[in-house]
């Protein structure tokens, strides 16, 4: 994971004043760059639709059982579009503002420790290092979201080292947070069989809480979680619309309605075919291609071209 970050960072560092999309054009030529941008925009849209479908599925099965899915999803799209259509700065302010909500999640999850049995976590490592690696391979990309910063690299204040530090810190924090949640779900449930039976173990666990004044904490949890979903959907929306805007040299708000409609339709289709896990597998492959291979390739290309340029310079 750190490798992915480093590759992206080095690529951005090569052209510190350019947006990621411009870097594509610069390193791989006009035509190939444009195709790359389209691919990335589609990739972000797909990811966005996947998130929407997942969210619609969870809200539909936990909170609003009888509301049609398309209403829940289209509301989310509309709300996100409202925020994305303004400046990057206001979006950043919003993200900072909603970050403290994580503390509530932390508190909610820690509360379950009172019923936990730490023996359930054992045996660790019985499956072998290879299996752990295989498992983590699938999960790794759900933690990648902070690459966002590399697409808006020139707009962020601070030296490139600071930015790298911020991204790495953010990833470490998220990884720890997820690990903590997984750990708690593991120690709370009886056996692996239980975990396999419950589709969303964490929500299920919270549902059992009773604070004597208020019950059904899962409802509150989901309400807060919706805001987090909105943030991740917003950045995908922003990136894909920025990509198309870069392609046609127009304002990114022009493409927002189009992208919203596409993601909406695709996500409803995803929910309709009801095979989210299969889609997730395909998406994981996409993650590898778009977040690891292409940046690495571009980095190599940029190194070669730079060296060639410098050699030519010396020859002159």
């Amino acid at each position: 994971m750190i490798g992915v970050i480093l590759i992206m960072w080095m690529l951005c560092n090569q052209y510190p004043c350019l947006v990621m999309y411009d870097i594509f054009k610069k390193t791989s030529g006009e035509f190939l760059g444009k195709t790359l941008i389209v691919c990335y925009a589609v990739y972000f849209m797909l990811q966005g639709s996947y998130i929407l479908a997942r969210y619609g599925h969870i809200v539909g099965s936990w909170v609003l059982e009888r509301t049609p899915h398309w209403i829940i999803i289209s509301l989310m799209v509309a709300v996100s579009a409202y925020l994305v259509k303004d400046t990057l700065q206001s979006l950043a302010r919003f993200y900072v503002l909603v970050t403290p909500l994580l503390i509530i999640l932390l508190f909610l999850s820690t509360y379950s420790l009172k019923d936990a049995n730490f023996l359930y976590i054992l045996p660790i490592g019985s499956a072998g290092a290879l299996n752990i690696f295989k498992g983590s391979k699938e999960a790794i990309f759900s933690m990648l979201g902070f690459d966002f910063i590399f697409f808006i690299f020139p707009f962020v204040n601070g030296s490139s080292k600071q930015k790298l530090k911020a991204v790495i810190m953010a990833h470490i924090f998220v990884t720890l947070f997820y690990t903590y949640l997984v750990f708690i779900s593991l120690v709370y449930f009886m056996s692996p069989v239980d975990i396999n039976l419950t589709p969303e173990p964490f929500i299920y666990m919270i549902k059992a809480y009773s604070f004597h004044v208020i019950e059904r904490m899962d409802l509150f949890f989901i309400s807060i979680w919706i805001i987090s979903v909105a943030t991740s959907f917003m950045y995908l929306l922003l990136l894909s619309s920025k990509g198309l805007a870069n392609l046609f040299r127009l304002e990114h708000t022009r493409f927002l309605p189009l992208i919203c409609v596409i993601t909406l339709i695709v996500s409803i289709w995803f929910m309709h075919i009801d095979k989210l896990n299969v889609i997730n597998k395909y998406l994981t492959a996409c993650h590898y291609v778009f977040q690891l291979f292409i940046p690495a390739l571009l980095l190599a290309v940029s190194f070669i071209t730079k060296r060639r340029a410098s050699v030519r310079h010396e020859a002159k």
């Binding site: 909170v63 509301t67 509301l75 709300v79 409802l219 989901i222 919706i226 909105a230």
Partner: peptide
Amino acid sequence: LGLVGMSFGVIV
């Protein structure tokens, strides 16, 4: 939309 609707209100 219940609590979900309120979350959307909060986001906006």
